[in-house]
Each structure stands twice: as C-alpha cells, then as structure tokens.
Amino acid sequence: MALSLRVAAISTVVALPFGIIIAMLLARGSFWGKSLLDAVVHLPLVLPPVVTGYLLLISLGRKAPLGAFLADHFGIVFSFRWTGAALACGVMAFPLLVRAIRLSIEAIDRKLEDAAATLGANRGWTFMTVTLPLALPGIIAGMMLAFARALGEFGATITFVSNIPGETQTISAAIYSLIQVPGGDADALKLVFISVVICFAALLSSEWLARRATARLHGA
C-alpha cells in the first residue's frame, strides 16, 4: 500500500521535469521528427501495457545491454526492484502528463512572453517567470492524472518487474493476487476501497488546486 503510493509519487515527480521539457518542445518547437516524438510519447497510451512492460524488460533488464550498463556503471537496477515499478508507472503515465502540460502551454498568450522580452527578460527568465507560472494549472492537473494512472498501473509493471510482495507488488497487483486466492475477497475489497478513495482524493484535490491557480491568474 505504502509501496504503491511511493512508486506512484516518485514516478510522477521524476517524470515531471521531462514532461515539461517534452511538452515545451511539442508545443513550441518546430523541428524535424516532431510528429515522431509526439507519436513515441503517446505510444504507451495505445500499446497494450504488457507490450510496454516487455519492451522495458528487453531493453532495461539485467541481461539487456542498456540495463547492464546502468547497473555496472551507476548501480541503477530496474528489474525486479521497486525502482522498476516506478519506471514502468512513469512511462505509462507520461503521455497524460505531457498532454495536460502541452495543452496549457499552447493556451498561453505568447504576447505576454514578448512583453517580458521587451522588459529585458531573456528566454530562460521568460520561461521561469511567465510561461511556467501561467502553465501551472495544467501542470498540476497533469501531475494528478499521472499519479492516478501510476497508482492503477498493472500490466506493464507486472510484466517488467513481476509481483514480489514488499518490493514490486503495487496495490493493483496485490488485489489481483488476493482475488486468485480462495478467501482473499475480503482483503481484496479493502484494497479496492482504499484505491478508490486515493484516486478520488487525487482528482478532487487536483481540481481544487487547478481552480485556485487559475483564480490567482485572473486576479482573485
């Protein structure tokens, strides 16, 4: 349970900076391969989660070149660890995160960024002081969506890092295991209830935070 929350929270937080960068590229950039990048980012949304998990396994598993390289040189091991569960959740939630942030960046009036430039702000300052704060409602919404998605992730996680109690068994995997065992229904129902409550709370709080951020923008 706590593991699930940790996995979902860490995957969301770690994915956030990448999500902002990719969203910025997709919203503002014009470069060769942009539609390809867009497609790759959205792939986990349409691929069967098991396929995503398997792709992670063959690219980042211990025996895979990239996985071995990370393990040998940086001591980063994903396979059959909770970090792997976080990675799988992050990858699965990434399209939702990018989409929400991208839409909010696209909605920003670029004339405000021009105004910042005439006042002496270079591109970095403009991004930090104008673009990012104005995109905040979308960033919050994206994080909450990603968090809820990560919490519910099952297919990719179980394929990539299996279902090891205490290490990679997230709430969804635990519910699945309990349902398979005779007499596990009562415990499964408890976990179901908890996950409904968490996701509901996440959605409500994101709605509230986003509304507050929007109200601030419009001068309340």
């Binding site: 004339k111 405000l112 021009d114 105004a115 910042a116 430039a117 005439t118 006042l119 002496g120 702000a121 270079n122 300052w125 403009t126 002081t129 104008v130 704060p133 104005l134 601030r216 923008l217 419009h218 001068g219």
Partner: peptide, 20 residues
C-alpha cells in the same frame, strides 16, 4: 540585437500586464 537586450520600453495596445 535580441529584444531583451535593446532597452526599448514598449506599451502595448492591450497592456499585456502579467496576470499572475
């Protein structure tokens, strides 16, 4: 010279104040 280094003040037709 990029706009941010020109030191030219600009008052826009619609103000363009930062809402946040």
């Amino acid at each position: 010279v990029p706009a941010w280094r020109r030191r030219i003040g600009y008052v826009f037709q619609e103000g363009r104040l930062f809402p946040h």
